[in-house]
């Protein structure tokens, strides 16, 4: 009886530990949902700078 109790407690404890350890961090964190993404597109006609002052960029 005692042995059963011991192992059941032990087992449930292990389950709890493994659950929190192995669950992906996504479940517990507040990563913002960027599903409604804004489309960012560079304007292909823009000419970028090669030099600023005397420094190459």
């Amino acid at each position: 009886m005692e042995r059963k109790k011991f192992f059941s407690v032990f087992g449930l404890g292990m389950m709890g530990i493994l659950f929190t350890r192995f669950s992906s961090l996504k479940l517990f964190s507040k990563i913002p949902n960027n599903k409604k993404k804004i489309k960012v597109k560079i304007n292909p006609l823009a000419v970028k700078r090669q030099k600023i002052g005397n420094k190459n960029v």
Binding site: F10, G13, M14, I17, L18, R21, F22
Partner: peptide, 13 residues
């Protein structure tokens, strides 16, 4: 119990 759970968790995780 303490040692076993710690060791197993450490390696398993």
């Amino acid at each position: 119990v303490a040692a076993a759970s710690f060791i197993i968790t450490f390696f398993a995780s």
